[in-house]
């Protein structure tokens, strides 16, 4: 479904060019769950954003290569055409739920506007679907909660809302960029379970970005390990866990506490 070839990403500022993703290629099949692991600065987040063609506000990024989504090169689309892909075909969940919701709109409005944009629903129809979605991601009393503002929700609840936003138009691919990093440990597991369940129910492909091998264990089938803008190793998750080849992968795996082992204090 998604075939990425020779992808490069270059930040351009003050005439200087900084290449942060170096000619990488990867594939994601329909319904497949794939992990991208690497430290911050490894280029994994930029890679995820490349698929959405989202540059950070105020900076300019030059993309290179090809991103074929169902045979269509996303990098060749106009910005206007790209807005029909974003949210509708490919959706994204971000790292910091505390900062990801618009503080002056109710939570419900922030799902409504997306449904009305992509699914050509009326306001009333959109709200009905919004309430369903909020229920689906495990928000209690969704009819009333839809009219609350983001500051009335906890971090974990906000991430649930953001997941509801992302899956609202039943996209083919869901990109989750460090979706649990900003959350408490107990909440992390809940959010991961929610993502797994929705993936199964909606038949989405999942691209899970994380720095933590512990997060992707049991979540994905295949893994790409990134370092310095390159993919240094890839393969089925079990093989990689059992016998990591690249020293960088070995180092990352060594940092994960295993169940049953106890670190000496």
């Amino acid at each position: 479904m998604l075939e990425v070839r020779d992808l490069t990403a270059e930040f351009i500022r003050e005439g200087e060019v900084l290449r942060v993703v170096q000619r990488i290629g990867f594939d994601i099949a329909a319904g497949e769950a794939v992990g991208f692991v690497g430290e911050s600065g490894s280029g994994k987040s930029v890679t995820a954003r490349a698929v959405m063609r989202l540059a950070p506000e105020g900076s300019s990024i030059r993309w290179g290569g090809r991103i074929l989504f169902k045979g269509q090169d996303l990098l060749a689309l106009s910005e206007r055409e790209m807005t029909d892909v974003r949210g509708r075909r490919i959706a994204m969940v971000f790292q910091d739920p505390m900062a990801s919701l618009n503080p002056v709109m109710t939570v419900g409005q922030q799902i409504d506007d997306m449904l009305m944009r992509h699914m050509s629903l009326s306001g009333a129809q959109a709200r009905k679907r919004t309430v369903e979605l909020l229920g689906l991601v495990g928000i209690r009393d969704p009819e009333h909660r839809a009219d609350d503002y983001p500051h009335q929700f906890s971090g974990g609840m906000r991430q649930r809302v953001l997941i509801a936003i992302a899956v609202s138009c039943e996209p083919d691919l869901l990109i989750a960029d460090e979706p649990t990093t900003a959350l408490d440990v107990t909440v992390q597991a809940q959010i991961l379970r929610l993502l797994m369940r929705l993936r199964r129910e909606l038949g989405m492909a999942l691209m899970l970005i994380t720095h933590d091998f512990g997060v992707i264990a049991g979540m994905v089938e295949r893994v790409y390990v990134m370092n310095n803008g390159e993919i240094v190793e890839s393969g089925a998750i079990d093989t990689l866990f059992a016998a990591p080849k690249h020293p960088y992968t070995q180092a990352l795996l060594a940092a994960v506490p295993r169940i049953g082992t106890r670190r000496s204090a």
Binding site: L54, R88, D113
Partner: peptide
């Protein structure tokens, strides 16, 4: 971030 999210929503 919420502006980035809004763009990611395809608005």
């Amino acid at each position: 971030d919420y502006v980035m999210v809004a763009r990611a929503k395809g608005l």
